[in-house]
């Protein structure tokens, strides 16, 4: 195998890992705390990509687009939460799956209505190339990796070092006992849902320059996102990160070996890991309950 291709594939894989992580950390947190599967996260991901397209076209600034996308999604997710999602917190998981699947379909419809069916391009905001061991690597990909690392550290800091994060960790363990202490668990649910949604939007924003922004983009990343969540173990941030790293590399190096492997190999890896550890890499504590 060609060394330059390999370096290039590893970097591409790492940047995909970053995108997977941003998209799945919310899925994982929502399941951990509210015991819900929030399929509408894929709508926020697509909405993020479309908003960065629109705002960038209007203002010429991708960074403004990033901000605009996150704010728009925050508002959209808040509306969805107040109207719909808050009713299924802590209900059997089927309720949230069906309901948020509906929200997702509605969202995709809305996107088609507003932006039409034809895919939209978003230019990469950083155009330079960096030389790594003789291989030219787009700096934007490195930026995506760094951003994901920063978000990972920030989420870990929030969960482990702040009182709200501590309450969320306690709630992941036992929500009723958090309430019994006198803490309004519903506010924690809302906070977690909004945080998840904004991170999903951010995933869409940074993914946009890699792909054409299209109404179906949320659908096409769904399978990969679920693989990441399942391999990592629901509810574990560290597990999500490790698993995103694995899936990213498997996809990009798999593609290098034989193109169809990019789609197949992650499923193989998932099956092997689940055979050895049915709860996912870091999922044991939660699934015991």
């Amino acid at each position: 195998m060609n060394g330059q291709l390999l370096i290039s594939a590893i970097v591409l894989g790492l940047s995909m890992s970053g995108i997977y992580f941003l998209l799945t950390v919310g899925l994982s947190l929502c399941y951990g705390l509210m015991r819900m599967i929030s399929l509408d996260q894929f709508f926020y991901y697509a909405l993020g990509a479309y908003m960065v397209y629109t705002v960038t076209s209007l203002t010429g600034s991708f960074w403004l687009g990033m901000l605009g996308a996150m704010l728009t999604t925050l508002v959209a997710a808040f509306v969805v939460e107040r109207l719909i999602v808050k009713r299924v917190y802590s209900k059997p998981v089927m309720f949230s799956m069906i309901l948020t699947f509906g929200v997702n379909l509605l969202g995709v419809g809305l996107i088609k209505y507003v932006w039409g069916l034809s895919p939209k391009p978003v230019a990469s905001p950083i155009s330079g190339i960096m030389n790594i061991f003789g291989t030219g690597v787009p700096i934007y990909r490195l930026f995506v990796i760094v951003l994901a690392v920063v978000v990972y550290l920030a989420v870990q800091y929030f969960l482990n070092k702040t009182i709200l994060g501590t309450a969320i960790r306690a709630g992941i363990d036992d929500a009723e006992k958090v309430e019994a202490l006198g803490i309004n668990i519903n506010r924690l649910f809302t906070l977690t849902f909004l945080l998840s949604s904004v991170l999903s939007a951010l995933a869409g924003v940074i993914h946009a320059p890699f792909v054409m922004v299209s109404p179906e983009m949320g659908m096409s990343i769904t399978a990969f996102a679920f693989m990441v969540v399942i391999i990592g173990g629901l509810g574990s941030i560290k597990g999500t990160m490790v698993s995103a790293l694995i899936v990213g590399q498997v996809v990009s190096i798999g593609a290098l070996i034989w193109a169809p492997l990019a789609e197949m190999a992650p499923f193989l890896v998932m099956m092997i890991i689940l055979l050895i550890k049915p709860t996912g890499l870091y999922g044991s504590k939660l699934m015991n309950r």
């Binding site: 501590t166 960790r169 306690a170 992941i172 363990d173 036992d174 006992k177 309430e179 019994a180 202490l181 006198g182 803490i183 309004n184 668990i185 519903n186 504590k285």
Partner: peptide, 23 residues
């Protein structure tokens, strides 16, 4: 809501002896 009740000064302590494991 139970969190208001707890804050008002009436608290329930569960029989399961389960404290938050990760805290």
């Amino acid at each position: 809501p139970s969190y208001d009740v707890a804050r008002m000064g009436l608290k329930y302590i569960d029989q399961d002896k389960h404290v938050f494991l990760d805290l």
